[in-house]
Structures are given as C-alpha cells and as structure tokens.
Write a protein that binds this DNA or RNA. Structure first.
Lengths: 318, 318
DNA sequence: TTGTACGCGTTATCAA
DNA sequence: TTGATAACGCGTACAA
C-alpha cells in the first residue's frame, strides 16, 4: 500500500510538498500540485490516519459515556452530541456502560492512551476521585452540577424539582411521591434534597414507600402502579423523572381502574412525544441543546459551566 | 511524557525488553521484568496507542452504522453489538446517520484510513456499489440479505412477512395493510414483495392507501390511525413493523373510539416491553443475538451468512 | 517555494 | 534470553 513517500517519488517532489497538497497548505505551485494529485490517483494512495494521529498527538475522536442509549433522555443528549460532532467534523466513540464503573474507566483509559481527545460523561457511577486524575490527559466534561474543577452543562435539578413540588402543592396535592432512575448520582441526590427540603418546609412526613427507584421504561410504570395499589397509605401525586415511566403509569392506570389525575396526579419529565400523545403534564428538557453544548465544551481548553433551563408543560395529568 | 525508550533507559534494558513486558511476551527474566515495572511506575509511562496502531496496522475499533439509536430496533442491535464488543475487548465507533449517505461514507472513509478495523451496517441508504469498493480496506458486515460477496446476519423478511400475512388471512382479515419505516431498503423491499405476492395469491386488490411509511415511533401510530379514519375504504388489519408504532395505534384507537382488534387488527414487530404491556400480538426479533452475531462476523476474515429466526407471539390485538 | 531530515512511539525481525 | 535496528507513515522545523 502506497505511502506518502511513494507518492512523492512518483510525482517527482518531496514528501513535504505532498503533505502540503494533502493538507491544503499554501506555497505549492499549481503544476506540482497537479503532479501530486495525479500521483495520488495513480498509486491509489490512502492516508493512514494512525500515522497522522501519532504525529499530531490527536485523533479527532471524542468519547461519550452513557449508561444506555435506548432511553429518551440519553438518546436526546446523544442526538445533540452527534449533531455537533458532525458539524465540527469530529467522531464519537460511544461507551454504553450500563452504569458499570469498569466501562467508564475503559473510556478514561482511552483518553490516557491518546485514542480519544476528550471524554464526555452524560452520567456516571464512578466517584469523582476516580475520574479526576485523568484530566491531565485531556478535557473531561460532565453533565451534572459538581463542585470540582471541571467543565459541565447542567440543569439545576434541585430548583427544578422544588418548583415542580411546589406546583403540585399549589394544585392541592398533599401526598407527593416520586419515581427516579437510581437513588445515587449527583442529579438524583439533588432531587432528593429538594424533596426533603420541600417536605420539611410544608411540615409533611417523609414516606420511604413513596419513592420508586429503578424507573426508566414504560414497564416500570406498571410496576410502580402495582406497588402503589398495594400500599395502605397511597401517594396522591407522583413526580416521575421520565415520560416513559409516566406513560407506563397511565397505561397501567387504564387497565387497573385508576383514574388520572383524580386518583393520582402524574408529572413527567423530558417532554417526549409520548407525553404529548397521552396528554401528560411534563417538564421539557432541552436535551439536544445540552448535547451540543457538552460537545462544544469538550473542545474547549478552559473550564466552562453552562446551565440550561427547563419548561413546565401543562397538560392533563395534574 | 515518558515513552518506551525512557523506560528502557531507566530500567537499564532495551526497548524490546520493555515491549515484551508490556505485552506479556515470554522470554523475560524476572529481575529485568521487575526493573521495567519499576521504571514504568517511576516515569509515569503511558502507552501511546496511536503508535501501536501505526505499528500494527489495527486499532481494535469497529464502526457501527445506524440511522438512529433512539429506536428499539436499533437500540436492541446496539445492545448486542456493545455486549460482544466488550467481550472481545474491542471498542465501538458509532455512526448515527439519520439515513444520510454522507455519514455512511464517513464511516467507510474511516475504514479506509485505518481508523477502524471493520464496519457494520445495521441499515443503509447508500447503494451497494458505493460500499463495495471499501471491502479492500477491511471487513464490512451487513444486516440484510443481499446477493453480494459480503458477510451478513439476516432475517428472512420475505418469509416472515408472508407468514404474518397468512396468519392474518387465516384469522379472517380481508383488507390488510402495513406500516413500515421507509419504502426503500432491502428489508422493506423484501416485505413489499411478500405483500404483493400475498395479494396476488389471494386475488386481492392492491391499495396504495393501506401502506403507511415513515412509521417509527408512537406518534406515527396516531398519524396512521388518523389517516385510516379519513379513508373511505379502510383496512381491517395492519402489519406494523415496529411495536412503537403499534402502541401508538392502540393509544390513538382508545382516544378516537376505534376498537382493537374488532375495528382493526394490529400485529407488531420486535416484542418490545410495550407490546407486552398493551397485549400486542407481535413478532419477536432476536435483536441482541443479531447484534452479537454481526459483531462476531466483523472480526472474521471469511464471508459468513447467518439467518436468525423470529417467533410469533399471540396476544390480544389480532 | 521546496526539500532534507528528524521526531512521533511502538512492534517485529534477526542476530547474538 | 536479550538487544540493535528497521519498519510503520506522516508532520514539520529548518535550511536552502
């Protein structure tokens, strides 16, 4: 397979000149340029990007870490990330981790080994102290509000959750619970703090049975509603941190004879199309915009923080 | 940043010996081995994979091309692909194409430039003649039955569709239509052929209005049902090539006062959890298994073809 | 405007 | 069992 030297020989010029033509640098005479182009054609020359990467110390690839891709929240982020990557002529290396630390570290190791130029964490299991040492190898970007020297794009989960709780309170709900993906994680904990503070401010009792974790998909909504129906003391409203689960609750409610919002108020998150179909009151998150911003941050040298805003969309489940 | 030569110098051995230790090759005395390990520790040496890639001509990264990831069909494939990639200690580079040829070519160009070792097409817009020339640069694997010299994993779409049509016929449906993602594409065309052949064998008329393309998501189901309700001559059953759209049809039917299966029989595809929740009769596709197999094929030198089987799951929408 | 020569960091070959 | 050295292929000072 022909390399740059072969091309240079055929064209009767130096490798520098070939390199100049290849990279559209100035200072190449038109006739030589043509000769190089012909030599490339003739030899079937193909650039070996590994050599370029070795020489330049960069690969043009950005790592993206997320637990799943088959969930609207992450799919939305990914869409924005992919759009911006394309715009910037960069490539994405996807690390679908299922929240396994080992996989997250694998991404960071690729950063260390110069296989990716930067790494974007859309969510994580690893503690920050595991991630932090890798910052010397390249830009690391987070999708959460975190008190560390790192770039991130975030939603003020505490405030959003608090606002949502107050909205439910204002609508007259007295026994509010919530569904969440996992209890751990910065975002989840901010929500839990908001929930606790809300309860305290309203002098309401905390009821562990009204928190439903592992809620990601439609089928989880069914599970949640079954659990609720078996409760002596039931919540009268639920903050559901994704529309899929909210939709599942509505579908299950139909089957189980619950009426929404009379028996149970439901507020979703994401504003996924299914929320519109089922008229679910929800909080719209600008996921694609976040994805694009995360990507931009991964290309910046300096540390930047960006908050994005959400929007309450009132429909019929509250 | 320390390189292999620095390590060699510190340890007082040659680079070859360091390389041996690094790659766990035999023929290294334990004391030298220890010296190397210490030198690595001391110098903070990190392997530069770009140099390895240049030297070996491989990167251990496999490209995956798919139009979207936020669709259960592709998410299912991706899950299997990611599992096997992990098992084989390879990395996935994701190309989310939105069915744009330009993006598909970008993946192939990375193959050409040795940035990925192989490329897996889960679906495509590009014609085969655009893809074929890239086979010289690495293994290309398709997820469709195609009459070319290439490895693929496939579902016999013609047969599956035909069986489904006959099942509907046997259940007494007389005016069968179908929903599909796009009309083009090998898989879609095989289905269309089956549909045409079925109509012919039953001496049924073809009705263009009973084919609904652009059906991917729940909201498409609502659109389809609205279109149907505006039809003078309505289908009495629909083969819906993904459960999302089927679910959308059911949800819309509820709102619009259609009764399923009485007014409209619905058969989904995929056996996604939502199909179980809504009791949708569907055809289960072994997506993860397909994904794993696609990945395995991408690592094989020789051309292999693998058919996978589907399973009809009878529930309540037929 | 062009060319020489070296650096990038590793693996592989072959002789010792 | 070890080491010297040649690839691998490109970018780029620096010299001309």
């Amino acid at each position: 397979m022909a390399n740059i030297r072969d091309v240079a020989r055929i064209a009767g010029v130096s490798v520098t000149t070939v390199s100049r033509v290849l990279n559209e640098h100035p200072y190449v005479q038109e006739d030589k340029r043509q000769a190089v182009l012909e030599a490339i054609e003739e030899s079937g020359y193909v650039k070996n990007m590994n050599a370029v990467n070795l020489s330049t110390g960069k690969t043009g690839m950005i790592g993206v870490v997320m637990p799943f891709t088959d969930h609207p929240y992450f799919a939305g982020l990914l869409k924005g990330l992919a759009e911006e990557a394309r715009f910037q002529r960069k490539k994405l290396v996807l690390f679908q981790t299922d929240y396994e630390r080992e996989q997250e570290i694998a991404a960071l190791e690729m950063l260390k080994h110069k296989q990716i130029d930067a790494c974007i964490f859309c969510s994580r299991s690893s503690e920050w102290r595991m991630i932090e040492p890798y910052q010397t190898y390249g830009q690391i970007v987070m999708c959460e509000e975190i008190e560390e020297e790192v770039s991130y794009t975030f939603i003020n989960q505490y405030q959003v959750f608090m606002n949502a709780l107050n909205y439910l309170d204002q609508k007259g709900y007295k026994r509010i619970g919530y569904c969440i993906g996992r209890r751990s994680g910065t975002n989840s904990q901010a929500r839990e703090r908001a929930y606790m503070d809300f309860l305290k401010s309203k002098h309401l009792p905390f009821n562990e049975e009204w928190i439903f974790d592992n809620s990601y998909h439609v089928q989880d909504g069914e599970r949640v509603l079954k659990e609720i129906s078996s409760l002596v003391q039931r919540p009268d409203a639920l903050l559901v941190t994704n529309d899929q689960t909210a939709a599942g609750i509505l579908i299950a409610a139909e089957k189980m004879g619950f009426s929404i919002p009379e028996d149970l108020g439901v507020m979703g998150f994401d504003n996924h199309p299914i929320a519109e179909m089922l008229s679910i009151t929800t909080i719209a998150l600008p996921l694609e915009k976040m994805g694009r911003n995360l990507f931009k941050q991964s290309l910046q040298q300096n540390i930047l923080r960006k908050e994005v805003n959400v929007k309450l969309i009132e429909r019929k489940t509250i």
